[in-house]
Design a protein around this nucleic acid. Structure first.
Length: 288
DNA sequence: ACTCAGGTATTAC
DNA sequence: GTAATACCTGAG
């Protein structure tokens, strides 16, 4: 595959740090020049921002422009969404000003499922390390600018991998979950392509919950961060619980606040944009 | 040595 | 249904 380039000019919502550090992805890394390089599907892309230009460079299976338009969700009007959310209250407005450049990526559903199973009760450096080792061991190699990159392994590529193999990669207790979920998908008990076509988000959520290692939080992350792109869900992790309690509930012990209450407040306030609201609040509380 | 990190599964009321 | 508890691993 040969290198391609695509330059995008005058886009309002696009900050590299906001997009890649807001917690939605694990395979983008900052380079010495401030650009980011990442791998998704069979594409390796470097993204650089210069003034009002976004420069995409990389090796793609298809046309780089179409590839990044889809992956970076370029056809959605984030300015409009931010305007709508900012009107709701000053808290969300502040968080949006902080994470003004966030866009939610259309990440491969299978990769998102496995990545967020790995994320459970884990920390980011370790999650990234595990995913890289998985890819290096079982994915395809792609060369870009003389460097080796490895694609995220497909279900087929994990077909004969044992629980012990996973344990050796540092998966910990998540080894069985990865093994069983992969098996369920390979056996067709869960059909990912069908899932994408199902407009009933709650039905899809129930289906995701049958996968080993997928609980409520992971299911919501998958719904929001994969190419399922369901913006009405509201993943609740420790940070979101913290920020929601600080802003709207003010219980003296945040760990005692029920998920139900948080979900209710989120749905009432943010409606079908709850997912994006969650992302601004999460990023703000965690990084600011 | 001990706690903590993007939760889930299991078990016990 | 809701609450308590164990769980790999490695960095601080």
């Amino acid at each position: 595959m040969k290198e391609q380039q695509y330059i995008l000019e005058n886009i309002d919502t696009f900050e590299l740090k906001d997009i890649f550090d807001c917690g939605q992805c694990f395979r983008w890394n900052e380079q010495e020049d401030g650009s980011y390089t990442g791998i998704f599907k069979k594409n390796v892309i470097n993204v650089k921002k210069e003034k009002n230009k976004i420069i995409f460079n990389g090796v793609c299976q298809k046309n780089i422009r179409e590839t990044v338009e889809d992956y970076f969700d370029l056809n959605r009007d984030y300015e409009k969404i931010k305007q709508q959310l900012s009107k709701i209250d000053n808290n969300i407005k502040t968080s949006i000003q902080y994470g003004k450049g966030i866009r939610l990526l259309n990440q491969d559903l299978w990769e998102t499922i496995i990545s967020f199973i790995i994320s459970a009760n884990n920390n980011i450096p370790r999650i990234k390390g595990i995913i890289e080792r998985l890819a290096k061991q079982f994915g395809y190699e792609i060369i870009y600018k003389g460097q080796k990159y490895y694609t995220f392994p497909t279900p087929e590529q994990l077909k004969n991998v044992t629980i012990e193999d996973y344990r050796k990669l540092g998966l910990g207790f998540r080894d069985v979950r990865l093994y069983e979920t992969t098996k369920m998908i390979l056996e067709g008990k869960i059909n990912l392509e069908k899932m994408k076509k199902n407009p009933n988000t709650m039905q899809v959520r129930e289906e995701l919950l049958t996968l080993s290692g997928v609980g409520p939080k992971v299911a919501d992350c998958i719904l929001l961060f994969s190419d399922l792109k369901r913006f009405e869900v509201f993943p609740i992790d420790v940070w979101v619980r913290r920020v929601m309690n600080d802003l709207y509930i003010k219980n003296e012990d945040e760990t005692k606040v029920s998920k139900k209450l948080i979900e209710k407040i989120a749905a009432e306030r943010f409606g079908d944009l709850a997912g994006l609201a969650q992302q601004y609040l999460f990023y703000w509380r965690r990084e600011a």
